[in-house]
Design a protein around this nucleic acid. Structure first.
Lengths: 225, 225
DNA sequence: GAAGATATTGACCAGTCTGGTCTATGATGT
DNA sequence: ACATCATAGACCAGACTGGTCAATATCTTC
């Protein structure tokens, strides 16, 4: 089985009512819920807070979902799907230059982040909790998507771009830590500005500057190839 | 004023009772409180949870501290002091090699982390909250310690170790992101093991391996110096 | 416009947890 | 015996919890 062709099927049955909801409203609910679950753990996440932020009456939430847990499971499923469809699927696995591939991937990720600010935060909390309340089905799906992402990043990388005296595995890690570090820094720098109405291009420029340093450091010089 | 000689004075008045407490018990309380405040924000941190984890009666906490907020402020003060005395003060500002200086610093930091696992986590949450409930005095003290740490890291670094074609400022960042990345990875890898009873030396070895890659990449070769 | 189905609200429920108080008792020293 | 300090935990009013439900508003179909 070639996992790179991973299909995505709904695992969590959700009510017709919610499925047929007008998309903007559905998204309002999803976003409010994602934000709440991203900030607090399951027990402390408040359905009251969710309905308030979503701008719906308390009753509606339990009209759409049977209970808090079902909502949570649906969100996991939804985010896994989105993460696959709007991010992983779009990574170009034919780009053999590791840094270049990740550079492009980060533009895609950024797009996802702008459209759905809390999806990745939420998924992050899910990944590092080994919640024994999750069904095997969901747990397995998490596993699959993780594996799929791993392949999209590492498959068909041209290792000969790297200098001979450099441990490629370590370089991989260092590059990813650099990206994570820059992300973190941006989150900190922009942490009180409204995400829209900012011109991000200068930040990408700056970010690519860091990647260039890494290329110059880790890759063999052009003229030596 | 040479801030590098920053003195440390108690800002938060604390009760005699708590000051005179037998150290092991005092530490039990501090640690329980740190853990709680590191995990939850001020409002959601539970004093009940703290007394339970500290193994004291509810009444005692409010015998030692006037209220929750005073406890919180005391913890900030305590952690700033510890961070200075047990970490920043011990960084060797005469080591001109940036990576080498940080390498040694990380051993010291690790020691602090073993003795007081939650101090840095807690301080982290304090740093990124711009809590308007903090007194100017505390806020200024945070500022001072931050500045002090910054100087301990960057002062007297020999920039000529770096390759000419590499932006040193960017290299600084990349090195620190690498360290943060490894820290994160270790936290994830060890996240369910008991912190004691582990031989950390292999991990330091591995960590230093990453730093060596960075040295090889960012620094001019020995024979060219 | 009647009838029936569907969508929506928020008051309400019992229960849990909150920061903080206070009384009762234990310990210690004189 | 007395006074001072240390300690525990029952107790408080109030906030908040996930979830329910009866009351209505809105829509669809005839």
């Amino acid at each position: 089985m070639n996992i790179i062709n991973l299909k995505y099927e709904e695992a969590i049955p959700i009510t017709e009512a919610f499925k047929n909801l007008e998309p903007t409203k559905r998204k309002r609910i999803i976003n409010a819920a994602l934000k709440e679950f991203a900030e607090k753990d399951f027990d402390h996440a408040s359905t009251n807070s969710i309905v308030k932020n979503a701008g719906i009456g308390k009753g509606m939430l339990f009209y759409y979902f049977q209970n808090k847990r079902d909502l949570y499971l649906y969100l996991i499923d939804y985010c896994l799907m989105l993460n696959k469809r709007e991010y992983l699927d779009l990574i170009d696995e034919n780009e053999p230059d590791f840094i270049e591939r990740l550079k492009r991937a980060s533009r895609i990720k950024w797009k996802l982040l702008q459209d759905n600010p809390d999806v990745l935060n939420f998924l992050g909390t899910v990944f590092l909790k080994d919640d024994d309340q999750l069904s095997d089905e969901v747990r397995q799906k998490i596993e699959e998507v993780t594996q799929y992402g791993w392949e999209k990043i590492y498959k068909n990388i041209n290792l000969s771009l790297f200098r001979e005296d450099i441990d490629v595995e370590k370089a991989f890690k260092l590059i990813q830590w650099a990206i994570a570090g820059y992300e973190q820094e941006m989150k900190y720098r922009l942490h009180n500005q409204t995400l829209s109405s900012i011109d991000y291009e200068p930040y990408f420029k700056e970010f690519f500057g860091y990647l260039d340093v890494l290329k110059r450091s880790f890759y063999t010089k052009e003229e030596e190839r």
